[in-house]
């Protein structure tokens, strides 16, 4: 297993939000987390990414315990976290957004731009525009491109298609689809059609606990199956 989250509790101050969560992700596997707003999906990703420390339990990535490590060290170990709400550096241009990720990944800017453009060819048009002016879909593609530059072994993505138009959802979908097998992913997603088409495995989260796990996508094709958690 590439990632093992074992029996993890997480609290904000005194309010415990995650209860005995355990999940596992294999090398190259694409795992989705579904659940209602407030269920604790973002909290779980932030905990894996090192932005929150669990009060109990362990997180092991590539054989190394990472619970409680600062986020930048977790990232350096090979994990990239793409935040919810499409947080690009709005005051910098698209090129500069890529430049910072390239610097972090220790690759040349020209090569980095080439790789982002390969993922999303239309990005060439916006290279010198402020990233703050991009549409939601373009921002998400920039974030995915930026994250992939670091050649992570695990990518954590929080609600990549939230608030996007149908066309933008397709573009994001294509990028996630194409990177199959090269990088493991844990994706929080509310759009069940995206989940059904891309997931290798699905965890349903309810009130801070993993309530079920689905390996068979045919099983969740029936809309009534996930109704109780969504």
């Amino acid at each position: 297993m590439l990632l093992m989250v074992n029996d993890v509790d997480v609290a904000y101050g005194r309010a415990q939000v995650l209860h005995q969560i355990s999940i596992a992700v294999d090398e190259g596997e694409r795992v989705f987390m579904v659940g209602r707003n407030g269920a604790g999906k973002t909290t779980l990703l932030k905990t894996i990414a090192g932005f929150l420390a669990p009060s109990h339990g362990s997180i092991v990535f590539a054989g190394r315990p990472i619970a409680g490590l600062p986020a930048e060290e977790v990232a350096r170990g090979g994990i990239r976290y793409v935040f919810q709400d499409k947080r690009v550096f709005t005051k910098l241009t698209v090129r500069e957004n890529i430049e910072i990720a390239a610097h972090a990944a220790k690759i040349r800017l020209a090569e980095a731009i080439e790789r982002v453009v390969e993922i999303y060819p239309k990005m060439t048009r916006f290279l010198d525009s402020p990233a703050g002016g991009l549409s939601g879909g373009q921002r998400q593609l920039l974030l995915l491109g930026r994250a992939l530059l670091g050649q992570p072994r695990l990518l954590l993505i929080d609600e990549p298609t939230e608030g996007l138009s149908a066309g933008a959802i397709d573009e994001v979908f294509d990028v996630l689809e194409k990177s199959k097998g090269t990088v493991a992913m844990v994706i929080v997603e509310q759009n069940l059609s995206v989940v059904r088409q891309l997931a290798d495995r699905v965890y349903a989260v309810k009130e801070g606990r993993v309530c079920s796990e689905y390996r068979d996508m045919a099983a969740i094709a029936d809309p009534s199956v996930l109704e109780g958690v969504l």
């Binding site: 986020a71 930048e72 990232a75 990239r80 550096f89 910072i100 990944a105």
Partner: peptide, 23 residues
């Protein structure tokens, strides 16, 4: 690039950290 990292960090420190930068 160092200056740009600081500008990015002024806006969103955690996003810079998530790239593996010791901001």
């Amino acid at each position: 690039v160092v200056g740009k990292i600081v500008v990015a960090g002024l806006e969103d420190k955690d996003a810079v950290r998530s790239l593996g930068i010791r901001v």
